[in-house]
Design a protein around this nucleic acid. Structure first.
Lengths: 336, 336
DNA sequence: ACGGCTAGCGCAAACGTTTTCGCAACCAGT
DNA sequence: ACTGGTTGCGAAAACGTTTGCGCTAGCCGT
């Protein structure tokens, strides 16, 4: 910037002012500065600016695994929305482990991100977010809420699970197994709650043995499903409460020589992008991934604008995608 | 840091020195400082550090669309590798448009990233990278090379395409259509070249009418495939030269009432994560996505360590995944 | 007793911006 | 001719680090 100022024959203040236009500068001077900028190929140093301004125009994203299509979509939406507002995003992967989460958040705190969008892990607990909070960062949780005093955007977990289970029951299933997510996450709890109300709606008993923990990922889910299938009175339908566990379940079913939906029904939380090409046409409840991302940055910016807002929780609706892995005719309308 | 220094009864220099341990400090002082750090909840401000040190320990990733599973995997690998080396990544989406690319790179240049990993777009051209280069950023291109004087990691495009086409020919196909990628990208050129050598290997003529541009994405590919199917003498096999175009092709085939592999054969560049669940079991050539990411950060760090290295190009092998969309028995060995 | 060495530490100048304060020049109104 | 307002600009102090330089105190060897 010094060079630019020298070349334009003005002071650095003036250069700064025309660049940000933060005070009136006659057209002629402005032009000279612009010329000098072009001539020197000057690129404003945003780290210096961040230091001075005490804001980085950066938002951190801390999620378990961007490889999970659900998070991929969310991240993509976040990035787009953030960019539209002049923010850039820094991505840290915290593979569902409390330690990684701590490391990642520390890095982000050091980098002085203005805001943080986080899918909190089970055991990180509310404490992990405190440091960022003290730094005045705007924090929004997605998918699950670990700290109720921070903003969050989640989906209608209970409702989605309930509808799926009710539908399976309506298809005549009386023993419906469930693959549950990581214990300790609010989404896991809510989906289990939905499963239970779904059963109740249908007048079916709740049997603890029909639950198996799949930890929201494929391999554990495969084992969990295998366990359910080995029961004395095995389920005739399975509810996998996220996408990865659906894959695990399918693998287990294949290993047991069971085909969907002929031998066993399957319904799942989370839709897949190219579901149409899948062999069993999965009946699912789809999350509005992009909307989650968009809502998250909206909340974040609002909080940045007014830090004294009360904590808000936005809960987005899910959408039932009725196909035929549930065993009913493809055209049949799902129960509401 | 001032507070920490005051609390510990030392100067800021000393605090800085114990934090980075950059000079000998007796254990006792060190402990006092550590105590003060803990007591104040101090988090080092890396933006100030970056300003002073003239390095950000940040690497930028500029790719078209992280929603594409191929890029998702690459990004994930990059993030992991970078984090292992103490770098954080900032992500900018440049949706295959020259303007977005320019914007994104400008943002990264302003943020003074130490390095950049970019999947260059067709028309951004070598120029887009120049500014970053002048800033001494280490640049590595992935998937395609737009600027031969920058490092790059790509895959054996020609070889992969060639093997797939040769295999289709060996299955008896004499008219093999190809869905080509975005014109202007090196990967597109190389895959077309592979297609041609594959044909030549098999003694088949090259017919320009069997090529249709699918722009590396689904909808254009659907239309392109539809065009090929409408030919007077339509292809009996299709080679889709990336994952998204495969989806487009499948849609076109479905619309024409064609099933794979009975009515028409299909082979594709890029594997899918859950190919096993897909209805046509796709014969594909898989890219080593994670290795691409890892190699990219390796090259990047090496260049950071020694900016005078000559430009390097690493070309990674691809892996043929033989299933049955190509129409031959599932167990049959693919031709080498 | 004195020079030299070392260990332990602090001062202050950067890094590249933003922003406050204030100066000079000009114009208008009396 | 003087006041008062406006316009156009520059000087310099921050922001929170890192780091070169140098100071002091103690110790050893002579």
């Amino acid at each position: 910037m010094r060079d630019v100022a020298a070349l334009a024959g003005v002071s650095v203040s003036t250069v700064s002012h025309v660049l940000n236009d933060t005070r009136a500068v006659p057209e002629e001077t402005r032009a000279r500065v612009a010329g000098a900028v072009a001539a020197t190929g000057y690129t404003p140093n945003s780290v210096a600016r961040s230091l001075k301004r005490a804001e980085t125009r950066t938002i951190g994203i801390a999620i378990g695994d961007i490889t999970n299509p659900h998070f991929t979509a969310v991240v993509d939406a976040i990035e787009a929305a953030a960019r539209a507002e002049g923010y850039t995003v820094v991505l840290v992967g915290i593979s569902e482990s409390a330690e990684r989460e701590r490391e990642g958040l520390t890095a982000l705190a050091g980098r002085r991100v203005d805001g943080l969008i986080v899918a909190p892990s089970a055991d990180g607990g509310p404490a992990a977010l405190e440091r960022l909070r003290r730094q005045q960062a705007a924090i929004v949780q997605i998918d699950r809420v670990a700290n109720p005093s921070c903003d969050a955007v989640v989906v209608a977990n209970e409702c989605g699970a309930r509808r799926l289970v009710r539908h399976l029951a309506a298809c005549g299933h009386r023993r419906i197994g469930m693959l549950t997510g990581l214990p300790g996450l609010s989404s896991t709890r809510e989906r289990i709650a939905g499963y239970r109300t779904g059963l109740r709606d249908a007048g079916l008993p709740y049997d603890e043995n029909l639950l198996a923990c799949g930890e929201y990922s494929a391999e554990p889910a495969r084992q969990a499903a295998a366990r359910l299938l080995a029961e004395a009175d095995p389920p005739t339908a399975l509810f996998a409460s996220n996408n990865l566990m659906t894959l695990g379940a399918l693998q287990a079913l294949a290993e047991h020589g069971l085909t969907v939906p002929d031998d066993i029904a399957l319904a799942a939380f989370d839709d897949f992008a190219w579901s149409d090409l899948f062999k069993p046409h999965l009946t699912t409840v789809a999350q509005p991934c992009r909307e989650i991302g968009q809502a998250a940055v909206r909340l974040l910016l609002e909080r940045l604008a007014d830090p004294d807002l009360p904590p808000r929780l936005v809960r987005l609706p899910v959408e039932l995608r009725h196909r035929n892995s549930c065993g009913c005719a493809a055209g049949a309308p799902p129960i509401a």
